[in-house]
Design a protein around this nucleic acid. Sequence first.
DNA 1: CGAACCCTTGATGGCGATCAAACGCCGTGG
DNA 2: CCACGGCGTTTGATCGCCATCAAGGGTTCG
Lengths: 228, 228
Amino acid sequence: MRPGERPEIASLPLFRDMQDEQRDRIFSGSFLQVFPPQLTLFEQGQRPDFLHVLVDGLVELYASGAGRDTTMRVVEPVSSFILAAVVTDMPYLMSARTLTSSRILLVPAAKIREVVRHDHAFMDATMRELAMAYRDMVRALTDMKLRQSAERLGNLLLQQEQRQGGTGTVKLRAEKRLLASLLGMTPENLSRAFGVLAAHGVRTDGANVTLADREALEALVRPDAISD
Amino acid sequence: MRPGERPEIASLPLFRDMQDEQRDRIFSGSFLQVFPPQLTLFEQGQRPDFLHVLVDGLVELYASGAGRDTTMRVVEPVSSFILAAVVTDMPYLMSARTLTSSRILLVPAAKIREVVRHDHAFMDATMRELAMAYRDMVRALTDMKLRQSAERLGNLLLQQEQRQGGTGTVKLRAEKRLLASLLGMTPENLSRAFGVLAAHGVRTDGANVTLADREALEALVRPDAISD
DNA sequence: CGAACCCTTGATGGCGATCAAACGCCGTGG
DNA sequence: CCACGGCGTTTGATCGCCATCAAGGGTTCG
């Protein structure tokens, strides 16, 4: 582990408040590994072997079915993923692959389940993490059921703009084809959706998007105050 | 509380393994109330005041946005709902209304959060409940993104048939208009979806549905083995 | 420099929403 | 007991969003 990385992982909400001793147990049983781009980390249906913590890089979680794939989440560092499968010890509902070269901390699932049982603060953090993840999924599902594609895109841009500092600029971290899949549409229609938003002050230049007229965009998208 | 009801609630996975003393604390601060049909229990955006446990009746959880509503879940007895909002103490993401006259146990949210902190088994059960709820939402979102409407309906019928005993018969507990909203479509298209499935052995008679040719239906729907 | 690959743009088609109307069920009130 | 009215469901007609198919332009990388 590089200097500064371990404190960064340890300060994640999931690990922050637990006993030092228990945290040491988790980390000592874990190992950090570098994966090349486009590598499948695991596939849906498998039993969970590790809790994954993305330290550096970019990871896609996707689900397959009915002969097609769809992106469920793009994981950015530093954060953990597939916690729910680990604590329940039930098969993954999603597959994972690296998008870029990625450094990932692998924590044996059995160790997580063991430490959860013995460290109250860690269980508390796990519970909260799962509750937040559940709420994220509720938002994603309502978004998919209630909004059409251009609205979903506009909404995502508004949220990303806030998370990236509110400078009126959004930097797309992943390819547009992936963004399309995340939003539940095809690349072609994502392109057209950007075209629709152009009439509402959205300028695109490759991966750089500028929101020139926030008011007009919000009028189109009608963002939900609760979804913040 | 009627005789037999309290044991039924206490034997729920959520409350089953906690200390008797802590369970008493929770129940002593709670009260059971009867609500008429079509009554709004709470609305999205509100701060959670109670954990709800549906003892008898039927409750709809729905979300509003972009000028429309969509059903997120139909709650059947005996089970709790809106646990995630209660433990995080964050605003509801969904609204709730009774569909039929319902008996609901109302547990003060603050008491839940307090007991969670002190009872390890209860926290463990809460964590697991949230993990399962999260997984349910993942399944719902993939279903919505990957399948079209007739497939979603067929899938739901197959699952309901299993949950109702595998007799080849499904009894729809709610109105079809509600089922349509749950599946993310209009009542008109639900009707047409039943029409499509009729060619695959699905006979409907009001709220009674019989699956005459399970193989044909599964061939159409391609159910996912993981989604069981 | 060439070959993928991504993104874009255009043309077409299908799924599902919307609009409209008729049927059946069930309650109320005459 | 029957007539009426309301509501949920069904069926038909039309429209719009989005997927698919197809082709061209731009970028990256070998």
